[in-house]
Write a protein that binds this DNA or RNA. Structure first.
Ligand code: NAD
Ligand code: NAD
Lengths: 211, 211
DNA sequence: GAAATTTTGTTAATATTTTAACATTGTTAA
DNA sequence: TTAACAATGTTAAAATATTAACAAAATTTC
């Protein structure tokens, strides 16, 4: 499973989300082309991904929704679950905590950190907010493995360093400023502006094509 | 320029962001390996991307920061700029508006839409909030081309339909529910959970490797 | 002033990802 | 019963994306 393509990992997560919705609707089986339709990809790709994880559907009946959800969970989730911390309890930080609050999942946001004394000590949607000083202890004590960064861009690099020092293993950086971490820390960066600019680019292209 | 690789488009947007920071610091030239370092990619890739857009640096001096920013702008920006609307002025919607407020860019969020009467009529960080009924007129009148969706997941599909009907050309969907749009509308979907699950997966993998 | 160095630009090779092709096999229907 | 169909699973091919290799040229060093 170690060498599943990166893209397949992402899609498995998405398949599961779609499958959970199907389960809620009472669907017990699903065809590859149904999953594909939802995700805007081809049925071949779905079947190929499922082949890679060794799941076999029933010919002419499709895939068993429940089984597949479980299998994907076995592959991408860590058995004991993974605890997550969020640094920067501002607009985006709070929005994310809020968003995750309802979801039952192997991923739990168990701590927040902020520099603002007014926020420290508060509990937001069930997540307690700590001071930066407390970071090393809290991260160790709560067995936190992943950190989400939603601090102002100017503090991006400091925050990344602090997280690394505290022993975090993976970082998701929502700051528009790329950071550097040791290679043993898995880093994912996402900037909303890039995505928006990409959409705008293709819209522009289509317009130019038409004219 | 039409056939630039998708990945190159994304990177150009990111290069520009990095270059703008350099400009602020008073840097006039930059080497490919410096850009690469910031973006966690290789210098070859940077040079190749720049080759694709036909930009030529100065041997041994690197690239002219200002020129490159301008060129990237010419390629990915639309000359007149593109107006953007955001549907769903909740936590995430407001966070996004806030985030964009400061940035000078060819992309402007010029309208928000919500179903909540308490929000309609308000102005948030300079963006006026309209009712859903007003969507067709507002989108036409303000020449809005791109829509960002930050409504509750259950309304994702309705919102996409409404945006398409109102004549939008590109959609960026932050809802965890994939939507369907006609093929002439460019659609990009982003779910934060996918990214977080991916980070968690690689953290898990690394741990298993170590043990 | 020649050699070494550094950096760009480009072509070629490699790696990854997606798509196509098709064999296989239950199921439906004539 | 058998032909047509609709689905999966897999191998092969094509398309995309990244990396390596190296020539060319400006700069520095000896
Ligand atoms: N709001 C968005 O939609 C959005 C989108 C993309 C990216 N971002 C980025 O996410 C980050 C946060 O955005 P926001 O809108 O939530 O900003 P915000 O100002 O609302 O929140 C920032 C929070 O970080 C805290 N903080 C400041 N310095 C800190 C430090 N050194 N350590 C810990 N906490 C610290 C502040 O007290 C505040 O609570 C920014 O870098 C922004 O560019 C935001
Ligand atoms: N908060 C996050 O960090 C986060 C992250 C990823 C995805 N999301 C997704 O983004 C969406 C919004 O999240 P949020 O935290 O901002 O939720 P929210 O409840 O704070 O905001 C939703 C807003 O949409 C409005 N709304 C409801 N129905 C509408 C309709 N039919 N048309 C227009 N507006 C409508 C509500 O009045 C509210 O203002 C959700 O789908 C959520 O799953 C949120």
């Amino acid at each position: 499973m170690k060498d599943l393509p990166h893209k397949t990992i992402e899609r498995l997560s998405q398949y599961r989300r779609a499958l959970l919705l199907c389960l809620d609707k009472g669907k017990t089986h699903i065809y590859s082309h149904e999953i594909a339709k939802i995700q805007h990809i081809t049925a071949v790709q779905v079947r190929r991904d499922l082949m890679l994880i060794g799941y076999t559907g029933t010919l002419r009946k499709g895939y068993n929704v429940k089984e597949l959800i479980d299998l994907i969970g076995h592959i991408i989730d860590s058995e004991e679950g993974i605890n997550v911390a969020i640094v920067g309890m501002g607009n985006l930080g709070r929005a994310l905590i809020n968003y995750f609050a309802g979801k039952r999942s192997k991923l739990k946001i168990v701590a927040g950190f902020d520099i603002n004394p007014d926020k420290i000590g508060n509990i937001m949607s069930g997540v307690p907010c700590f001071s930066l000083d407390e970071m090393p202890e809290v991260i160790a004590a709560r067995n936190i493995k992943v950190g989400i960064m939603t601090v102002p861009a100017d503090f991006a690099s400091d925050t990344a360093n602090a997280l690394v020092k505290a022993g975090i293993k993976g970082i998701l950086n929502y700051t528009p400023k790329p950071v550097n971490v040791p290679k043993e820390v898995y880093l994912e960066e996402y900037d909303m502006i890039t995505t928006l600019e990409k959409v705008a680019f293709y819209v522009k292209m289509q317009e130019e094509e038409e004219s």
